[in-house]
Write a protein that binds this DNA or RNA. Structure first.
Length: 810
DNA sequence: AAATCCGCCCTATTT
DNA sequence: GTAAATAGGGCGGATTTA
């Protein structure tokens, strides 16, 4: 029983290492290759040329093969897909491929930039993190089951001495490391702190050695920002102290075999490799799965800030002990045992977050067919791309190339129309129903067979009606619709199983055994990952760096989307609904004549049945929800309350990070009163009280902080903005900043510009009361009041804040 | 000279 | 490093007002 957890090309051994749980296999048969649009003769001639003689050494084999290529020139009168011969060039080593790219002088080269280990997973039939029988024998290899493999997981965190703002690995030592796993809780350090999880070692060198010793026996290592901090720091410290860092599992070296036969033992393969991935680093250890939870949290959750503490609170609702980086040195010097507790809590919550995200990542890894390490660092578009590469390979297609920089720049400038948004009927509404299309874009893609390899195919030109001047093949299913259909069908099956299990559970009304729970949970994760991937295909086709980019396809999809929602609005109105608001794939409506909830719901279901009969079979308009009340302010900004008094807020300041907490709290309180009771006077009172508190300095500093993200390098900003000015101050103090960092600041008093008065919360001596009243508290609540028909004049006679306050304070 | 308007840049949301 | 549609703050130059 074996399961693959990592794949690495060993450049010393010149072959692929397949890391299974507790076993390493070598794959020597698989060689790097790519394709050239030229004949073997042309290539042979080119390579026998004296200038290119050295290139010939790299080539292991030339072979003419039939492949299907997508003709991306839509104006071309040839077919959309063409099957013809290309030359497949197999080389000795991965690094030979870049050298042979000069062959593009002879004709376009294809699939020359797919990393070798990823290529291996595309071409092989191995699904990562899945149990197989007879793994070592390619012909007898069979999947046992879909259970989650028993992976040994551990979290790891490090504390470092820090004098200034940033620790310096040349000077500042590692103070302690902490770990958490199912059966291990430990903090290692070289000062005798008192704590139940403490392990004392002699010095930093021993600390590092002991740390490696612990980690090497685990399969998965969770960190929080380990990519950019813990591992690079650990590596550098170890180098400076002259320590060799190898993560080879105890006993692994004895079990290394060729596929089939035994070979000499080999050690010292698994060391930390730091590589650049865009602006960030990646810390990889061959054979281990390092999962950095920080980027996953950033991608998956929507929070103001993404400190470990914020994420723990979001996921588990617990506040963990927090220590500022600068305070670590103090705690260390004073032998404060809180440092140990803090360090352990970091490891503990990192572990919990890791276990929380792992199943979903495992599912992505299986579906996309790439390693956990890679998949946990991919965005949804990259996952779609690898999924498509897999299916492209299976169907004998040549994958389109990634765009050149020029092509990318060109694509960036291509705009097209998106979803339809109806101007809302502003103000308060009651008895509201909402309906939306289930997976609108994916279902359109499938229904119309929209794909770069089916658009405007010559074979179907005459028999097709044109959509924005385009049509799609009727004879052959396109690559993207095919992949999408697979995902959606599998998801449907899972949903059905889950539903059956659910009713079964209810009928039995009994406690479930463990197997049932695990099975159920896992299917639920699979279902979630399938949904995410399905929903990413439209965005993928419109993504300028995509191989299967097609602006035309994306344009047709949104066009059809607009048509369907507009048609639905029209039908709803004919049916006796008043549509209050609609955005892209869904709408909110009330009945024209006054009615109770029951009448409304009955009518809604009648309407849905009627509409769904007319829709293509893969498309469906669904009931989404019923709401007692709702306030609609503008497009993309509204709030609703359901029967359980649950409030949903969309787009308003309350859900945005770039507003102070006090402004958000006030808006929420006002909305709550208006939605629950419709009492305008009470709402005014809330505002009045907050303003009084603000004036009396009763507001907690934390509630005044405004958070804004840096979205580019500080020098690229063309305008002065508060968060940019604060960022400059941070840099001046010796701090480091990255693109994507979130800056928090408070506006202090004075009469200079707002940007000049923005300071870091820790530096704020006071705050500008009138700024917070005029620019933070009032605008968000006034917009709501105004939408209810309470004119600004009613609230403020002249435009001075003093007068408005006067009105509120009466 | 001050107040106001407006376009631009920028961020963050919704779908 | 999925897309477009959208609102709204702050800045700074242009325009209007006194």
């Amino acid at each position: 029983m074996d399961a693959l957890i990592d794949v690495n090309y060993d450049s010393e051994d010149k072959c692929i290492y397949l890391y299974l749980i507790n076993k390493v296999l070598k794959e020597r048969d698989f060689k790097p290759y790519f394709y050239v649009d030229a004949t073997t003769k042309e290539i042979n001639d080119f390579l026998s040329n004296d200038d290119n003689k050295n290139l010939l050494n790299y080539v292991e084999n030339l072979e003419s093969v039939r492949k299907i290529i997508i003709n991306s020139n839509l104006n071309d009168s040839k077919n959309r897909i063409i099957e013809r011969n290309f030359t497949k060039i197999t080389v000795r080593y991965p690094k030979d491929v870049p050298k042979l790219r000069v062959l593009k002088e002879l004709g376009e080269i294809y699939e020359h930039d797919i990393p070798f280990t990823k290529r291996y997973l595309i071409d092989s039939d191995i699904i990562p993190t899945t149990y197989y029988n007879n793994f070592e024998d390619k012909n007898r290899r069979t999947i046992i089951n879909n259970n989650l493999p028993e992976l040994k997981t551990i979290s790891f965190d490090m504390e470092v001495y820090c004098e200034g703002r940033e620790p310096n690995p040349e000077k500042n030592p590692i103070l302690m490391t902490s770990f958490c796993s199912k059966d291990l809780k430990k903090v290692i350090t070289y000062k005798p702190f008192k704590h139940k999880y403490m392990e004392l070692v002699k010095d930093e060198s021993e600390l590092i050695k002991r740390t490696i010793d612990i980690l090497k026996d685990y399969d998965i290592i969770y960190t929080y920002n380990g990519d950019n901090f813990d591992f690079p720091y650990l590596k550098r410290r170890a180098e400076n102290l002259g320590i060799n860092v190898f993560f080879d599992k105890t006993g692994n070296d004895d079990k290394k075999t060729e596929i089939g036969k035994k070979t000499k033992t080999q050690k010292h393969k698994q060391k930390i490799k730091i590589s650049r991935g865009g602006i960030h680093l990646r810390s990889y250890i061959p054979g281990k799965v390092h999962i950095d939870l920080y980027p996953i949290a950033r991608r998956t959750l929507n929070l103001t800030t993404y400190k470990l503490e914020d994420v723990s609170y979001e996921l588990f609702g617990v506040h963990k002990l927090e220590v500022g980086h600068q305070n670590i040195s103090n705690l260390w010097n004073n032998m404060d045992k809180n440092l140990v507790e803090y360090s352990f809590q970091d490891a503990y919550y990192t572990y919990k977050i890791g276990e929380y995200f792992l199943p979903l990542e495992v599912m992505f890894s299986r579906i996309v067919n790439q390693t956990l390490f890679e998949v946990s660092r991919m965005g949804s578009s990259q996952m779609v791309e690898y999924l498509l590469l897999k299916h492209s390979f299976k169907n004998n297609f040549l994958a389109p190339n990634r765009p050149s920089n020029r092509e990318y720049q060109k694509r960036l400038r291509e705009y097209y129309e998106g979803g339809y948004v109806k101007e809302p009927i502003k103000g308060m509404h009651e008895n509201i129903v909402s309906m939306d299309f289930r997976a609108l874009y994916p279902s359109i893609i499938i229904s119309y067979n929209i794909s770069p390899d089916t658009i405007d195919c010559k074979c179907c030109e005459d028999m097709s009606e044109k959509i924005l001047g385009h049509w799609f093949c009727k004879k052959r299913i396109g690559l993207i619709p095919m992949v999408l259909r697979n995902l959606i069908e599998r998801r449907k099956t899972i949903k059905k199983i889950l539903k059956e299990k659910d009713t079964e559970k209810k009928e039995l009304n009994s406690k479930n055994n463990k197997y049932y729970n695990e099975y159920y949970k896992l299917l639920n994760y699979e279902q979630k990952s399938l949904k995410i991937l399905a929903n990413s295909h439209y965005g993928y086709m419109a993504y300028p760096r995509a191989r299967w980019y097609s602006k035309e396809c994306a344009e047709v999809i949104t066009h059809l989307g607009r048509t369907y929602i507009q048609k639905t609005i029209e039908e709803a109105e004919k049916y006796g609904f008043k549509v209050i608001y609609a955005d892209t794939d869904g709408l909110y409506a009330v009945l024209n004549e006054n009615s109770d909830k029951k009448t409304l719901l009955n009518k809604t279901y009648e309407f849905l049945n009627k509409i769904n009969e007319k829709l293509p079979k893969d498309m469906e308009l669904e009931f989404e929800g019923y709401y007692k009340r709702g306030i609609f302010i503008t497009k993309k900004r509204y709030a609703l309350i359901d029967e359980n008094d649950k409030i949903t807020i969309k787009g308003l300041e309350f859900v945005r990070r770039d507003w102070s907490n006090i402004a958000k709290k006030t808006q929420k309180a006002v909305l709550e009163i208006l939605l629950k009771e419709g009492n305008v006077e009470k709402a005014k009172n809330i505002i009045k009280n907050i303003i009084t508190d603000l004036k009396n300095g009763k507001i907690d500093k934390k509630d005044l902080i405004i958070y804004t993200q840096l979205t580019k390098d500080i020098n690229e900003y063309k305008t002065t903005a508060p968060h940019v000015e604060v960022a400059k101050k941070i840099l001046k103090k010796g701090g480091r900043l990255n693109i994507g960092d979130v800056i928090g600041y408070i506006i202090t008093s004075g009469n200079k510009s707002i940007s000049e008065r923005a300071v870091l919360p820790e530096d704020a001596k006071d705050y500008d009361t009138s700024y917070y009243i005029d620019n933070q508290i009032l605008p968000p609540v006034l917009r709501i009041m105004e939408s209810l028909g309470i004119s600004k004049d009613e609230l403020r006679n002249v435009d001075k804040q003093i007068t408005l306050e006067g009105f509120l304070m009466e």
